[in-house]
Simulated scan of single mutants.
Amino acid sequence: MSPTHSPLRGVLVAFAAYAVFAFSDASIKILHGAIPSYQVAFIGSIFGLVVLPVIKARDDSWLDIVQTSNRILWALRFVCGATGAIASIIAFTKLPMAEAFCLLFLLPSFVTILSVIFLKEDVRWQRWTAVVVGFIGVMIVLRPGFRELSAGHLAAAIGGLSAAVSIVILRAMGPAEKRISLYGAGLLGTLIVSGLLMLSDIAVPTPREWLFMASYGILGATGNVLLMTAARFAPANLVAPPQYSQMIWAIVFGYLIFDDTIDLPMAAGIVLIICSGLLTLARERKRGTPLPAAVVSVDNQAPVSATAELAEANFDGVEHPAE
């Protein structure tokens, strides 16, 4: 086995990446909304710049960050990057971590629906079943009519939908689009939009708040690099499922740090959502759709979006044989 194809190593690195992302998410929640979400997103996008040298191919120029074969889709990814980053930060600020992940894990279902509408994909009953199961799980977790829903729930749904739109854009643009351009669109979107929003209301962080914002940004960037490394070692279909280990971290952090509790209906809903996502990933593996080389998520609070892209194509753009 070549050193560039070690499935066990890739899976272990993927687990480490999602653990790092979970700690990044926890850093945001610890702030308790003391810093505006767009200011936190701006700090995160600054740290996202450190990933650019890793993404840049030898024959790429730095101007390729803003060059594209389809300006409209590039601009849409620009908007989705900013929207997803800010929305997911709001979600993790206002919701228990496990509940926020429940809604963000609807991403595969959103991708399926959007692919049918905009890409005219032929989706068979297995994937529709996964979509239905996922939404049933969300209804069990949220229990509308029996509990009050908040802006955090809406933000989490918007975060997942924004990431789904980004993935559909990747499919529409095809494998010819450069990875640095795709990543740059989301990064610049978050940097510019959140930077402009900051101008009207800039909070002065305390040393403690700086510590956790730095933790958020540094860990998010580290998680992205680890995720790309995992995709070098293992097939994408093996790198994707460990994303659901984040739910374990969310439950642990919620119990130990944030005094969150999970009742039986929520636990049942979480199981259904995870099953829905795994079923969708299993079906996606068989489609063989040509896509761009994997692009990590510029939104450190929604690493599931990175995973979904990795589930479609490997970091080096070469399909590895299924294990």
Rank of each mutant, 00 (worst) to 15 (best):
L142A: 11
T229F: 08
S215Q: 09
E177A: 08
R124P: 00
A163W: 01
A14Q: 02
E121S: 10
W74A: 01
N314Y: 03
T112Q: 05
A19F: 12
L281C: 00
G174I: 13
V304I: 14
I90N: 11
P292K: 10
S109V: 04
P36I: 12
A157L: 15
L291P: 00
A221G: 06
A130P: 08
Y216Q: 10
M1V: 11
A17V: 00
G184R: 07
G152S: 12
P7K: 10
G269T: 00
N224G: 13
L49E: 00
S24K: 06
L256G: 01
A282Y: 09
A41W: 07
C102F: 05
H32A: 15
T280E: 09
L291V: 08
L73T: 07
T222L: 15
I248Q: 00
W74N: 05
V318K: 12
R9E: 09
V295E: 04
A322W: 11
V20T: 14
D59R: 14
G81V: 10
A250V: 00
T93D: 13
A234T: 11
P292L: 07
V79Q: 08
R71W: 14
V193W: 08
L226C: 08
N70C: 07
L272C: 12
K94W: 06
T112E: 07
A250D: 06
A172D: 05
S200D: 12
I46Y: 09
L191Y: 07
G44P: 10
P242I: 03
F23A: 12
A75N: 07
K120V: 12
A268G: 07
A311C: 06
L95C: 08
G189P: 05
L238I: 12
G33P: 03
A98L: 04
Q246M: 15
V116R: 07
Y255F: 12
F212G: 11
A155S: 15
M266T: 15
